[in-house]
């Protein structure tokens, strides 16, 4: 019976290791890990909780119904207001205006879509900006070049 103490030692060691693993695992493996796969399930809900910045496609029409209606019957109908302005959340909080909406009058905005480019499909009207503005070579493009002729009504309803 002199060997029983060896068994006790081994058993003690085993229990110690198991306790260490179980306790260690409790602290190291985050809550909800493995609930739906090899990842922290709560991470999914953290992604969900993020607030959208862009509004729904008709969000601006709630308050700017005149402009929205004009745009809907013009060629810029497929262009979202937020593309030319900014996101809804920069302008509206809890259903009310809290900050000015960006108005971008820079020619570069129009050029993003209307600059003539090799490879740009014909479905969009394209102009060579310098030619269209009849600029002499070397002359810089004025910042608000396009809105001089294409005014706001023309832009919202081209």
């Amino acid at each position: 019976m002199e060997h029983t103490k060896h068994i006790w030692r081994a058993a003690f060691l085993l229990i110690a290791v198991l306790t260490f693993v179980i306790v260690g695992r409790h602290f190291l493996v985050p809550k909800s890990f493995g609930q739906a796969g090899y990842y922290r399930y709560d991470a999914l809900f953290e992604h969900m909780d993020k607030e959208p910045r862009h509004g729904a496609p008709d969000a601006c029409a709630d308050c700017h119904d005149d402009i929205a209606a004009a745009k809907a019957s013009g060629k810029h109908a497929p262009v979202q207001c937020e593309v030319c302005h900014d996101v809804l959340s920069s302008h509206i909080k809890d259903g009310d205006k809290f900050a000015d909406m960006r108005i971008n009058r820079n020619w570069e905005l129009c050029a993003y879509c209307h600059q003539r480019l090799v490879g740009r499909p014909a479905l969009i009207a394209q102009v060579d900006i310098r030619e269209h503005l009849e600029l002499a070579s070397g002359q810089a493009i004025p910042a608000e070049a396009c809105v001089q002729c294409h005014d706001k009504d023309a832009i919202h309803h081209p």
Partner: peptide, 21 residues
Amino acid sequence: TLCYHRLVRGETTACVQNCPT
């Protein structure tokens, strides 16, 4: 993230919504 936060609210992604064509 495929705008996961928008999808769960029934909205489409920012890139799809703002594509003019």
